[in-house]
Computed example of a mutant assay.
Amino acid sequence: MKCVVLCLGLALMIEGALGLDHTDWNFVTTVYDGRKVNGVLGINRRSMLMIPDAVTDPSKCNRRTINNHDFEKRFVAMKDPVKRECMVKPLGKRETYEETKKALDNGSEFIQSMEHWAMPDSPLPKNRVKREIGSMLADFCSDSALFMLKRAKETQLIRRKRCFLCLWCKGTVIHNHY
């Protein structure tokens, strides 16, 4: 019996030392462009996966993307499974595990801000994807064309046809469902 307890204690210490983390899953409601969007959110220290419910109003800025946040590499990949496109942008300063976990635990809200991102005309070459964004997001986007988004300037917003004015994860208001 002492051996079992000792082995269990050792396993827990090794898990803590290696930083292994389980994923907490939550049903969430976010407010996006004045509309509520329900979804599922899985979060651990390294990443966060956001899967919204199906889009019922397929307007220009209301595409259903599955979003994977890599807190270590500081990128978020927004995957459109219908168009087989994966858009990647840097995470904002406040988009961290700690801030997101605190909001989930407290039922607090994030303040949304409109972001303007320009999508390049061509995807990132496959041989550069893993080097640019890391293996986790490269695997997540492996079945899609990957576009590295850049901050859009006012002139780009007027001229470019492929410009994303809003993305589902741009700043999220999260409410817990119990």
Rank of each mutant, 00 (worst) to 15 (best):
D57L: 09
A17R: 05
C141M: 07
N67H: 09
P52Q: 04
C163M: 08
V28W: 02
C166P: 00
R151P: 04
V37G: 01
K89A: 12
K60V: 14
L157A: 06
L41G: 01
L149K: 00
R162Q: 13
L12N: 06
I158E: 12
S135Y: 12
E72Y: 10
R84G: 09
E132Q: 10
C141E: 07
G9T: 03
C169A: 13
L41V: 02
L6A: 15
S122C: 09
F164Q: 00
I133V: 07
L20C: 10
L91Q: 03
G42A: 12
H116T: 07
E95I: 01
H116P: 02
M78Q: 05
V37D: 02
K101I: 10
P123R: 02
E72S: 09
I174Y: 06
G171K: 01
D70W: 00
M78K: 02
R74C: 11
C86A: 06
R151S: 12
R74T: 09
G107H: 03
G9N: 03
S108N: 12
V4E: 14
F75E: 06
D33E: 12
R159L: 12
V37R: 00
D33R: 03
L149N: 01
S142M: 10
D24N: 03
N106K: 10
T23D: 14
C166M: 08
R84D: 13
N38Q: 13
V5D: 15
N26V: 02
V28M: 05
R159N: 11
D53E: 13
N127A: 12
D24Y: 04
R35P: 01
V5T: 09
L49E: 05
R131A: 15
L146H: 00
M78I: 04
W168S: 04
R63Y: 15
C7I: 11
M119W: 04
N67W: 05
C166Y: 07
L157H: 03
G171Q: 04
N68F: 15
R46A: 15
M119A: 14
R46N: 12
C163L: 11
L41A: 04
A77D: 03
P90G: 08
